[in-house]
Computed example of a mutant assay.
Amino acid sequence: MTDRSRPLLRTLVGRVLRRHRLEQERTLAEVARDAAVSVQYLSEVERGRKEPSSEILAAVCDALGVELSDLLAEVGRELVEHRAPVLRLRPVAPVTPVVRPMRRPTTPPHRSGDVMLLAA
């Protein structure tokens, strides 16, 4: 079962790519030509309909003049923004284990009149 409140990675990647393209005031056709991908494919990537391979992602980043690591960092920040609130618990003091020294097994004390059996 998928949690639909969490965005898909391909959706965020597309959103960040589109944002960079629009900030540069470039068309889909220009970026697609420079990345050597079809306009239709780049459009589907930007809309989160296609999951680009690492090679395509690198080519589009190169076409936009964006470092792949910077793109992924932006996507990571968006993922954090969409993360469901985490239940915060109070820290609990660590439990100190009780260590008791091991006892050696003791033989019962000998009493007068006890018989000892020795095996050969």
Rank of each mutant, 00 (worst) to 15 (best):
M1T: 09
M1L: 15
T2F: 09
T2S: 15
T2W: 10
R4I: 13
R6T: 12
R6E: 12
P7T: 04
P7D: 06
L8F: 11
L9P: 02
L9V: 07
R10K: 15
L12H: 07
V13N: 09
R15Q: 14
R18N: 03
R18W: 07
R19E: 09
H20W: 10
R21Q: 02
E23I: 03
T27Y: 02
T27F: 03
L28S: 07
E30L: 10
E30K: 13
V31M: 07
A32H: 04
D34N: 11
A35K: 14
A35D: 08
A36S: 14
V37T: 09
V37P: 05
V37D: 02
S38V: 09
V39P: 00
Y41I: 01
L42V: 13
L42I: 12
E44K: 15
V45Q: 02
V45Y: 02
R47I: 01
G48Q: 01
R49G: 03
R49C: 00
K50P: 00
K50A: 09
E51V: 01
P52M: 05
S53L: 07
S54I: 15
I56Y: 04
I56D: 03
L57P: 01
A58K: 06
A59C: 02
D62W: 03
D62Q: 13
G65E: 06
G65D: 04
G65C: 06
E67A: 15
L71N: 04
L71S: 01
L72D: 02
A73N: 08
A73E: 14
E74Q: 09
E74N: 02
V75E: 00
G76Q: 11
G76Y: 05
E78W: 10
E78D: 12
L79Q: 15
V80A: 12
E81C: 01
R83C: 06
R83V: 00
P85Q: 13
V86R: 15
V86T: 14
R88P: 00
R88Y: 02
L89G: 05
R90T: 12
R90W: 07
P91L: 08
V92E: 13
A93D: 11
P94Q: 12
V95E: 10
T96M: 12
T96E: 12
P97W: 02
V98C: 04
R100M: 10
P101T: 07
P101G: 02
M102D: 08
R104S: 07
P105G: 04
P105H: 12
T106H: 13
T106L: 11
T106W: 08
T107N: 04
P109M: 05
H110D: 05
S112N: 01
S112R: 14
G113M: 03
D114L: 05
D114Q: 14
M116Y: 07
M116I: 15
L117F: 08
L118R: 15
A119P: 03
